[in-house]
């Protein structure tokens, strides 16, 4: 108690100048948050270290923070494996680019139409999209529709179309259009004789760039990280995206360690499974694009949080 009082009187004086904790507390806070922040990136650093560890070292000492022997083998082996990995990388990039384009087009046109007061059916189409946020169709019926009605099983569209629209982003963008694009600008464009499409592409979209950036980054991230649709629908090796490839490699290994007796017979198959360091190198390669780019796009992701929460 006594100490607390003493500290308080001392605080009072310091608070006249700066409205914050003392230097000591600041250091403690820094250490605390720094530890938390470090725990968030440490696993990635660890995996990078493993990917540069020699196979021998891994066999003897396991995964170590300070490996006995470093090696580039993980990456050179990756280069030798190039067939499947390059194909998967290509699929991932293709799906991410095309998917994001489709997603952003579908989402922004839909959102713009229901944001316009002179669209007669805007209420209907708003509710049409909003209902999807209340109820989920479920994995089983979606699967049956995808396979027996749309016949998309084992096609690249099975990776793109299920995520081609996000109703939540429609609402986000609708709010964004209403707030950032003044009605008077659209009105004057109309008076000048511009068609609705022209107004949308030439006037509205340039004004909505921050919103478009936000939803396209979320879409791109979703596509890059997606393994679920591949898990459900993809069988051919040439359609396997990176994330799913990593998943398949791991489950093959789990299968073999669980059935050790079988693995003798499967030694042919064993050879095609990349070694430890190579696997970790693949993890590094599929994470690196995100790790390198998100700090630059961070503010868009964060602004997505704030525009999303507002209804009109």
């Amino acid at each position: 108690m006594k100490g607390g009082e003493k500290q308080m009187s001392k605080k009072k004086i310091s608070q006249v100048r700066v409205q914050s904790f003392g230097k000591k507390s600041d250091i403690i806070f820094n250490i605390l948050v720094a530890l938390l922040a470090f725990s968030c990136i440490f696993p990635f650093i660890f995996v990078i270290i493993i990917s540069f560890t020699s196979e021998q070292s891994l066999l003897v000492h396991g995964y170590a923070l300070f490996p006995k022997e470093w090696s580039l083998k993980g990456y050179t082996y990756l280069a030798d494996l190039k067939g499947q990995i390059l194909q998967s990388l290509f699929i991932t990039v293709f799906v991410t680019v095309i998917g994001t384009l489709i997603n952003v087009t579908f989402t922004s046109t839909y959102a713009y139409a229901i944001a316009r007061p002179n669209f007669k059916y805007r209420r209907f189409f708003t509710i049409f999209a909003l209902i999807t946020m209340l109820f989920s169709p479920g994995m089983v019926p979606s699967y049956i529709v995808m396979t027996t009605l749309l016949h998309l099983k084992d096609t690249v569209w099975a990776l793109i179309l299920p995520m081609a629209l996000s109703p939540f982003n429609i609402i986000v963008m609708r709010t964004f259009f209403k707030r950032t694009v003044p009605e008077s600008i659209i009105e004057s464009a109309r008076i000048d004789g511009a068609s609705e499409f022209r107004t949308f592409t030439k006037i509205v979209l340039p004004l909505a760039v921050p919103g478009i950036a936000t939803i396209s980054l979320f879409a791109a991230l979703g596509y890059w990280n997606d393994w679920f649709n591949a898990l459900l629908y993809i069988q051919s090796d040439n359609l396997v995206p990176l994330q799913f490839l990593l998943m398949k490699i791991q489950s093959n290994i789990d299968y073999m360690t669980q059935n050790a007796s079988l693995s003798a017979n499967l030694s042919g198959g064993m050879a095609s499974i990349p070694k430890e360091a190579t696997r970790m190198a693949m993890v590094v390669i599929s994470t690196l694009p995100i790790a390198c780019s998100y700090p630059f796009f961070q503010r868009y992701f964060v602004s997505g949080l704030t525009i999303g929460g507002v209804k009109e």
Binding site: F106, Y110, A113, F119, P141, I144, L150, L165, E196
Partner: peptide, 28 residues
Amino acid sequence: NKAFLLMVLPGALWLILFFYVPVTGNIV
């Protein structure tokens, strides 16, 4: 409203195929 209807068309089709049809598929 044809311009706006065209704008909502792709999204509305998606909602039908990937939401409304599967939702009714819940009768399984």
